[in-house]
Amino acid sequence: MAKINNTNDEQRLEVLKTYKIYVGGQFPRTESGRYYVVKSKNGDHLANVCQCSRKDFRDAVLAARNAFGGWSARAAFNRGQILYRIAEMLEGRKSQFVDEMTKQGLSLKQANEEVNLSIERLIYYAGWCDKYHAMASTVNPVASSHFNFSSPEPTGVVSVLAPDDSPLLGLVSMMAPIISGGNTCVILASSKYPLSAVTFGEVLGTSDLSGGVVNILTGFVDELLPYFADHMDVNAITLSDQSESQVTLAKEKSVFNLKRVFQYKNINWITEKGQSPYFILDLQEIKTTWHPIENIGGAKASY
């Protein structure tokens, strides 16, 4: 039988990827039909990327809200396993990410570091899922006959503006503490380096992560920031290296429903400073529970 022609890399016509967004576990295109062009450092056309609209954001928040009940109620151990699974999937597709990043202009060394550290970071937070409670909880010795304890609970739906200068690690470093704490999120990827974010959505899609827990949009901060900040069903917003005026705008818009606002500014994500259980605790609410303690008769604990 004759061999099929053109299977050599040099001769073969490459199949180009359509970069879509990741919402509710699906990979739709933006409802707006808009796109923007991402070019390589040489100016070559790399991809047409979705320029998401406020309606895409609205749909993503809906997906995140729907996913919140199930994700926050999962056993912490199970959340840890799923984060670990994401790391496994990423490990398996390492070369694809390195390829995409070098095309977008990162050096091979930088690209390798981004991916390797992203995997490490996911594993770091996989381990925290069932441990930060022990760190942040207290049993409070109240003066009355009550048992009283305080423990963290996820804040809810979080909107995230990922760092612009990091294609993958920044996004992963901001996402992981949010979801390891049982929150769900909508992330706006770096508009400069959106390709890895979209591909990372595909990793998430094959990682046992329920649809809607993480939603990744591509587009522009200036257009989407107001909606990320003022949506009444979003409980918190995390910012990265946005400008002072953007941050002020986000804070002002967040007032409508008293969103928790956190900015992770000037954090070098490749260092130890880029990971901490305190990032998880930022997106946690402390709940204190009281219950009476019965103490009848003279019986006391004794040795």
Binding site: N140, V142, S150, I286, T288, W290, H291
Partner: peptide
């Protein structure tokens, strides 16, 4: 099974 309890040790 209680209400409006407060204590300095309790957040």
């Amino acid at each position: 099974n209680t209400f409006n309890k407060f204590d300095p040790t309790s957040p």
